[in-house]
Design a protein around this nucleic acid. Sequence first.
RNA 1: GGGCGCGUAGCUCAGUGGGAGAGCGCUUGACUCACAUUCAAGAGGCCGUAGGUUCAAUCCCUACCGCGCCCA
Length: 877
Amino acid sequence: MPTAYNPRDVEEKWYRYWEENKFFHSEVDPSRVPYTIVMPPPNVTGQLHMGHALDNTLQDVLIRWRRMQGYNVLWLPGTDHAGIATQAKVEEQLAREGLSKYDLGREKFLERVWAWKEEYGGRITRQLRRLGASCDWDRERFTMDEGCSAAVREFFLRLYEKGLIYRDYYIVNWCPRCQTVISDIEVEHLEKPGQLYYIKYPAREGGDYLVVATTRPETMLGDVAVAVHPADDRYRHMVGKVLVLPLVGREIPVIADEYVDPSFGTGAVKITPAHDPHDFEVARRHGLPQIKVMNEHAVMDGEAGPYRGLDRWECRKAVLRDLKEQGYLLKVEDYTHAVGHCYRCETVIEPMISRQWFVRMKPLAEPAIAAVKEGRIRFVPERFTKIYLHWMENIRDWCISRQLWWGHRIPVWYCQDCGETMAERETPEKCARCASPRLEQDPDVLDTWFSSGLWPFSTLGWPQKTRDLEYYYPTTVLVTGRDIIFFWVARMITSGLFAMEEVPFKEVFIHGLVLDALGRKMSKSLGNGVDPIEVIESHGADSLRFMLVTGNTPGSDLRFHFERLDGARNFANKIWNASRFVLMNLDGYRPEEAPGPEAYTLADRWILSRYARCVRAVTESLEAYELGEAARAIYDFLWDEFCDWYIELAKPRLYHPREPRDRQLAQHVLARVLKGALELLHPFMPFITEEIWQRLPHRGRTIMLAPWPVYQPELVDEGAEAAMELLMEVTRAIRHIRSEMNVPPGKTATAVLVAEEEGARELLAGWRHYVEGLARCRVELRAACDAPPPQSAHGVARGVKIYVPLAGLIDINREASRLEKELAAVEKELARVKGKLASEAFLTKAAPDVVEKERAKEKDLSARAASLRQRLAVLRG
RNA sequence: GGGCGCGUAGCUCAGUGGGAGAGCGCUUGACUCACAUUCAAGAGGCCGUAGGUUCAAUCCCUACCGCGCCCA
């Protein structure tokens, strides 16, 4: 084995071994309990980014852990067709050839998209394999494969038949660049600096006028009214009067509506129903017309009069110029406000009236609210429940049609002769009403999230009643980022409850975003993304996974620091070398002849006790979704306890055993604890643990399927832990003296240990060789401190006084100041404890064990202080 | 405007109603036969501010300040 761990040598090999042997595969087995996760499907043409790496690492940890626990684990992978994103990529590709999708036509264009999908579709799944994802590739799905498409159609039809889908003219969010409508949640509101323009609208008769304030003056061309608040005394006399719209000359009424905020601007608001969602609602209430002044390219047309042909920003300038010239523009203020942007391309969206398909959400939301309120679905962390409920309780209808070509075509046909609208499961031949064969399918496709909303059951065979569906549904847990709770989690819940009458998953484990080192979101435009594949190549998949899991608290964001990656790699290397040590010293070890517990040394009992606690801590943390805590527990155990103490204590037993049996015993405990720790670590670092586990004595074909270590309370040995703690503290005290007094590491010192207490003295007598080995010294044990050695440095550890004679080496002043410093710290602490114990309230009200603890503390601190003081007195002569 | 999260060592972040933790960085010493991707020792913190609850608050409650996110 090389002295440094090289992930490249092992990762690919083991992944192939696992996959070829179908260790990831799951089959229905009613005799076993299923544990199911459906993978949030990454975009088919995308590539792995850090968000995917985090999301899938977390899933893989849970999956591997539960698999080892014996559950029948299914992790179902797949990809999403990602309508807008994919279509945009192919359009870019065409643009480089000087073509547009219209040059090709719908059919040819779709061929190109499918070809693209074939070419790039496998990229991300190959990358997931490199990450170590142990998902069942035999069940890989795609949101536009045959089964999912059938599910989409069936689902649409069921909603349609229940009257939950309708088509209507409504104000929608239009992206002038993507040339499609997007849903409300796809609009990103960004704070942008802008201006607030105050415009004068004169009354038709007399010199009266109103002043409106607006951030979008160009839309005034489509104004149909000015609204004021009904209770606003300033304007009460104006309500019902008629104003003349500047530049246009249109006569518009002054109306009263509660929607108006009297404190904003002038308290008078222009109403542009065709280009503002709020105005749209106001106009509906008042029966006002809608006047379109802009087309789908955000260029003025319709009733825009002389401004026709200008794009919206040019038009704004022109309108302002004209208003100013004609004396209507009274004031301009700087004003920062939230502007809706397309979440895909960041173009400013344009509210527009358009005929689209919608899902009536209220009836679907009710059971989705109940499911969470009744605890049938639980969010982890819990605080996301509130976010979810708030959104569900204020839900609006979902616009599901998209003016794209790539996606699930809306299964609705229109008769060209009689105008009949037909929603059908199978492509119809003729009109159901007039029998005309002249049918045309709706040109639009469905929102991508419509199909991903069905993911937990469409992938298991729905609408067929399959055994898979019966066995694996509802799935156990969904793991996903907090950014898509509304987009996806909420939709799966409503869809699952509607189609299956059962929740799609019992728990939702939400994680944060991976940010760059400066705390910014990783994005293409900033160029601050870190490629997980590059990281895997430089540091290994295990290191990446470990780094993503540790120091991460559920639901909160995570900054990506290369330093932390180095730390994870160092940990892998540490495990590698600890394992090398164990493996190099296993010759002659016969597991079946291992000595029984009666032969265990103190160190053996101690490490087994610590190991047992570690098993419990890791398991409990995983159960609570505290993955970072679990990882930290193994890290601390392996590095601090197993490597730094146990291995050091095992060395003499292996190199110079007093008896062969002790060597056997050390080998046994080393192998057992290391193997168990590797099993605990396997969900986090699958590759290195498999590589080492295979070399250790083991049963079974893979660590993946090794039984998860079970907490054994009989291994917990508090006596051994306390004893080791004392020996470790004495060791640390001697090391401290050696270091402070500049005793060369090669030089063996003498340590005079004075243990007045019998228990401690016996302990030190029995295990003095631990201290001697670990602190490189010769121990002289005494029962009383009658004559401390002259010219020695002093320390105290748990009632044990330590003197390290340093004839000729000791610097009295230096030693005195060291002891003074220590004494000051001890006295400070002692004062605090004494103060506490002096309080009657504390003694009567605090828990008895707490009081007891404080008393013990006082005793220990007093003894330490006394010893230090005495020593100082001697030094000062 | 409403909601949520965060503010702990120089940096990044864990954590807990009862003696402040880790990693990195820093200082000092060591190529000690698993590992210098290491080992040993050390320095470094009114746990954002002000109140309150409690015998006891970094932790619970309230207000405020600062930062970030979501929704309208």
